[in-house]
């Protein structure tokens, strides 16, 4: 796995978070961000960011971490 690819994913998710901090509290924002990732990110990208969040996750902003955690939870169709 390339660090560069992961770095880009981290940057992207933090950027998405920074642009979605206005949806109520952190949990609500995290849900909006997770929904965005579900809708627009490829399977492999989601998996990489989930793996990163579970193994390290230090470079993720607080809301990003919450969002990725939600992303990793099973979703009702």
């Amino acid at each position: 796995m390339s660090d560069q690819q992961l770095q880009h994913l981290i940057k992207m998710v933090n950027q998405i978070s920074a642009n979605n901090l206005h949806h109520g509290d952190a949990e609500q924002s995290a849900e909006v961000i997770a929904t965005h990732l579900r809708k627009f990110w490829a399977r492999s990208m989601k998996q990489k960011i989930i793996d990163y969040a579970e193994s390290d996750g230090l470079e993720l902003s607080t809301v990003s971490r919450l969002a990725v955690k939600r992303l990793s939870e099973p979703q009702e169709a």
């Binding site: 796995m1 390339s2 690819q5 880009h8 809708k39 627009f40 490829a42 492999s44 990208m45």
Partner: peptide
């Protein structure tokens, strides 16, 4: 049923080797 890679994601994945 999952979205695919966008152009910049394709470039990143190409460099990563996947």
């Amino acid at each position: 049923d999952e979205p695919g890679l966008r152009i910049p994601n394709m470039f990143d994945a190409a460099i990563a080797g996947s």
